[in-house]
Amino acid sequence: MELTFRWYGPNEEKITLQQIRQIPGCCGIVGTLFDIPAGEVWPRGRIHQLRQMVEDAGLTLKVIESVNVSDDIKIGTPLRDRHIEAYKETIRNLAAEGVEVICYNFMPVFDWVKSDLDYKLPDGSSTLAFVRKNIPDDPQQIIDTVADGSAGFTLPGWEPERLSQVRALLDAYKDVDEDRLRENLVYFLKAIIPTCEECGVKMAIHPDDPPYSMFGLPRIIKNREDLDWLCNAVDSPCNGITLCCGSIAEEPGNDIYSILAEFTRRGRIHFVHMRNIKYISPEEPGNKDFYEAPHPSECGSLDMVEMMRALHDNGFTGYMRPDHGRMIWGETGRPGYGLYDRALGIAYINGVWEALEKAGCKAGE
């Protein structure tokens, strides 16, 4: 298992690589080229420049997050084959620079939905939250909320130039139901997985966030059954999962622990977003509200040790990053992606993993 840290690049970050390098146990960067639109090729020269920058700081660049799949591919327009060829070329370029895992998603329009980007906790920190009554019926209002609360940063999946045309985008999806979206995902994967197998790159799909429909849009990576379908639909070790613990657990009916164990055993979890969430008023029937909690188990509703144990005991050898963090100690920046709380998250995760490793060694003596 290798611990990593998501970093958006020198033009998009207040956090420096030198600061990340000082986090004990953090070995790698999860990188991106934020400015390249979906459907276009990531040039090898740009990737090399990013890798060199990361390696000069004493870190590795083995995972790339947000090689975004274009809406033309998701919808299935006549442009999709051209965009797929561009995606394949990007895979080749990333592989040539040593990248092993690509995290992506297949969510229509919105990559994630939260009602609050500055949800205040009793200790004075702030975090991301999902409170259903605060989600407006008009998707334009949630776009405006995100824009107003983003602290001037572009947020992944909420690129202003794309969402400025949200009405037209929603209209383009009007005939895309879950079956059609699944067909389009399989079409995409059957086209790119042979390239991945040739290059030694693993695709790792991120679950839907939240794992149920919003604004009438289909969701197809929501639960254990969907993950099983994905693995069987294109049966290759290169067709795998970014197991975002928080996203799967946003549906309280999902057994996050058994999902982690099963798909680790099956060799399909290539990347893990490890985080905790705290259910708000779970005693209310059907209430799925939550906020993103600090990593330790006692701070949220998930047992972090049991999640880590499910990975460890079933042979997880992939990449992991602390997913999201509060704003603490007066820090300001991109919501969910501050330095301090994610650094604390890595320290906690690393400690749990070390304890599991040493307990396993003693048990085998």
Rank of each mutant, 00 (worst) to 15 (best):
C244H: 11
T332W: 14
I346A: 08
V176K: 06
Y291K: 06
R44E: 12
P210K: 09
G333L: 03
C245Y: 13
V176L: 06
D116M: 03
L94T: 02
E306M: 13
P218R: 02
S281P: 12
N184G: 01
E225A: 03
R182D: 01
S247Q: 00
S213K: 02
E55D: 10
T195N: 08
I29P: 10
F130N: 05
Q19H: 07
K133E: 09
K362T: 15
I64W: 07
A95S: 07
D116T: 10
C244Q: 03
T127S: 01
V41W: 13
I193S: 12
T145C: 00
P210R: 04
W353V: 04
I277E: 12
V69I: 12
P294Y: 00
A191I: 05
A191H: 06
S66N: 08
M307L: 12
I205R: 01
V272K: 05
P282T: 00
P207T: 02
A343N: 02
V113R: 04
T127E: 01
T60C: 00
R266D: 09
P294I: 01
D123S: 06
P108V: 02
A363I: 15
D137Q: 15
T264M: 01
R162C: 09
K120Y: 02
S213A: 06
H273R: 02
I349V: 10
E13K: 03
F188E: 11
G253A: 07
L169T: 12
L33W: 14
I192N: 03
F290W: 08
N314Q: 05
D175T: 13
V99P: 00
T127P: 04
R180I: 15
L344N: 05
T242F: 05
E65F: 06
H270W: 11
G364D: 14
G25T: 07
A363Q: 15
A293I: 04
M1L: 10
E40Q: 11
F153D: 13
V69D: 05
V131H: 10
V41N: 00
G351R: 00
A57D: 12
G58K: 09
D313T: 09
I15H: 01
E161M: 02
E262N: 02
S115K: 04
Y87F: 02
I36P: 04
R80Q: 12
M308L: 12
D111Q: 06
I64H: 12
T264E: 06
L230H: 09
E298Y: 14
G200W: 11
M304Y: 00
R82D: 12
Y257C: 07
E198T: 01
R51G: 03
A96S: 15
I73R: 15
T60W: 08
D303R: 06
K174T: 01
V54H: 06
T317K: 10
F130I: 11
M214F: 03
K74Q: 09
G25R: 00
Q140P: 13
F290S: 03
M308F: 13
A168K: 08
R309A: 12
D323F: 11
E97G: 00
D341A: 08
F110T: 14
T332L: 10
Y279C: 15
A347L: 08
A168M: 13
